[in-house]
Design a protein around this nucleic acid. Structure first.
Lengths: 107, 107
DNA sequence: GCTGAAGTACGACCGCCGTCAAACTTCGAT
DNA sequence: ATCGAAGTTTGACGGCGGTCGTACTTCAGC
C-alpha cells in the first residue's frame, strides 16, 4: 500500500533548542528557511536556490524536518516544503523572526 | 606598561550571524550566556557553573568574545565577563532574548 | 623574592557533520 | 511498458571543532 510516503514530523514539544540551533547554524539550511519565510508558500525540494548536490539537499531537509522547522508532503514525485511557522513560534518565541531577519540583512 | 592585557573585542557591525550562531550552538557556551543574562553582572571565568577544563573554558570565552556576545576585562588575576547586551541587541534584534528564554525553559 | 591562584597558549586526539557519487525507488507522461 | 524527472539511501571521505594535559604567564599576598 505504498504505506505513507509522508515522513515523520516531530511534535514541537519534543524538539530541543539544541536541535533547532544545530539546524539553523548551517548556511545552506538557514538559506532554505529564509527562502521559505520569504515566499510564504510551499516550495518543492528542487525549487530552492541552493548550491549542493541532491543527496546533500535531502540531508538538509531531513535535519530541518527533525528540528520541527519545516513540514514535508508529497505531490506527485515532488516533495513540497512548508514552514511550521505558527507551531514553531509557539515553542520558540521570537527565534525564527530574529534569525530570518538577521539572515536577510546579511544578504 | 603591562601593555593591554585586554583582548580585542570586535565591532558588532563586523560580526556575522554565522559567527553568532556558531557561538550559541554549543551547550557550554549557551550556558555561559544564560548565566550572564540571569546574573546581570560581571562574572569571573572561574565563577561559572561549567563542567570543562580550564583550557577548554578559555577556548569558549574566546569564541563568545569574537562573536561579540561578551566583553572581558581584567581585575587582578581574574578576568571579568559581561554581556554586551545593548550593542548586541542593536545588531541582532530579538536573537539573544529568544535564545536565553528558550534555554531557560529547557533547564 | 616565593608561592599559589587564575587564565592563556600550544599540540594532540577524536568524533561528528557536510559533502558527494552511485544505485535505487516512485511517480507522471508518452 | 518505458523513460525520465524528483528524491532517497547508503557508504565513504575530509575537515573542523570540542576536549584535554602540560607548560607558561601574570598578578596578589605573605
Amino acid at each position: 500500500m505504498d504505506a505513507d510516503r509522508t515522513p515523520d514530523h516531530p511534535d514541537l514539544r519534543e524538539v530541543t533548542l539544541q536541535r533547532v540551533l544545530e539546524a539553523l547554524v548551517d548556511p545552506v539550511r538557514r538559506s532554505i528557511v529564509t527562502q521559505l519565510a520569504t515566499a510564504a508558500g510551499d516550495i518543492s525540494c528542487g525549487g530552492f536556490d541552493i548550491s549542493v548536490s541532491k543527496s546533500t539537499a535531502t540531508h538538509h531537509f531531513r535535519v530541518l524536518r527533525e528540528a520541527g522547522l519545516i513540514r514535508q508532503h508529497y505531490a506527485g514525485t515532488s516533495r513540497l516544503n512548508t514552514l511550521r511557522r505558527a507551531e514553531f513560534d509557539r515553542a520558540f518565541p521570537g527565534l525564527l523572526d530574529a534569525v530570518v531577519t538577521a539572515d536577510r540583512a546579511s544578504a
